[in-house]
Design a binder for these strands. Structure first.
Length: 290
DNA sequence: TGAATTTGACCTGC
DNA sequence: GCAGGTCAAATTCA
């Protein structure tokens, strides 16, 4: 890897790989591959694209940061994030600590699934944009020490960097208004699988997807069949095509990108997502990652 | 009227 | 002493 653009391309390709894997998960909800949760895959997709945005915005992240959480994603032995003290004291190199996690988004109102209360705003000397300080809204009620900083780092296109500190101990389901529920801490998710629950009255689903999602997925698959029929006029070919796509990665097994191999090798050409409209539909799930 | 945000002051690390 | 992080009173909003 020599140039930042190549890094960006790698990030995009890896994001695409994760998106494909997520799609396979949705096509095969009963597959045995549960080494990585669907939420982690969705988060990886967002993170990869955020990394690419950062690079293209001339605000490169460290090479370690680009895929660091992806490499840890498959490891269930990662230690939990230590909780930050509530002291007013600034910790040495706090903002660069590996305990922190940052996310770049073109949307300043990026919804991460938690409720935050703004407690401060500062002009940062080396930046022309002010930095906003937030803490978890349940900071007092549940002694939750999670905090985040948000700062505009690029004007055109606008890019906002949100840096998270500490982790949530409130365990409050705050996503109900968004139509789904997350359990736990997004940051913890980098190391641990996470449950995603759509709707308020649904029981937990050990596959990580609820019945309603499966139902939607069925609709989408059916629509895909219809679209394919519209193009080929052949229902049988449609089924064969979809079946072949599934067989190309029968176990849904996932191979993280290696530094030595070509990223392009990771992709099965027949698995490329050609129907962008279909993926726009998947965006309806949102996952609370925007 | 209570909750959320703003903003100047204060505190601490470097 | 400076810069960044937090506090808390004042202000705004629903």
């Amino acid at each position: 890897m020599n140039t930042s653009q190549e890094k960006a391309v790698q990030a995009i390709l890896h994001g695409h790989s994760c998106a494909k894997r997520l799609k396979l998960r949705l096509d095969h909800p009963m597959a045995n591959d549960r080494s990585v949760s669907n939420y982690d895959l969705a988060k990886s997709i967002v993170h990869c694209f955020s990394s690419a945005i950062s690079i293209f915005s001339d605000t490169p992240k460290s090479e370690d940061g680009l895929f660091s959480h992806l490499s840890s994603m498959d490891s269930s032995s990662s230690p939990p994030l230590p909780q930050r003290s509530h002291s007013k004291k600034r910790k040495n190199n706090d903002t660069n600590s590996s305990e922190n996690w940052s996310h770049d988004s073109p949307d300043p109102n990026y919804y991460d699934g938690f409720l935050w209360r703004k407690y401060g705003q500062k002009t940062i000397k080396k930046s022309k944009h002010q930095r906003s300080y937030y803490r978890c809204s349940y900071n007092i009620d549940h002694a939750c020490g999670a905090r985040k900083h948000e700062q505009k780092i690029k004007d055109n296109p606008p890019v906002y960097r949100t840096t998270y500190f500490g982790h949530h101990t409130c365990n409050i389901n705050q996503n109900q208004d968004a139509g789904f529920t997350t359990v736990g801490d997004p940051i913890d998710n980098l190391e641990n699988s996470r449950m995603i629950r759509f709707g308020q009255d649904l029981d937990q689903d050990t596959s990580g997807l609820s019945v309603s999602v499966k139902h939607e997925e069925g609709i989408i698959r059916e629509e895909t069949m219809d679209q394919y029929r519209g193009i080929t006029g052949n229902d049988k070919d449609c089924q064969i095509e979809i079946k072949e796509n599934h067989q190309s990665s029968p176990s849904g097994s996932y191979t993280p990108p290696s530094s030595s191999g070509s990223e392009i090798d990771m992709f099965d050409s027949d698995l490329l997502v050609e129907d962008l409209d279909l993926w726009d539909r998947y965006d309806l799930y949102d996952f609370g990652l925007r």
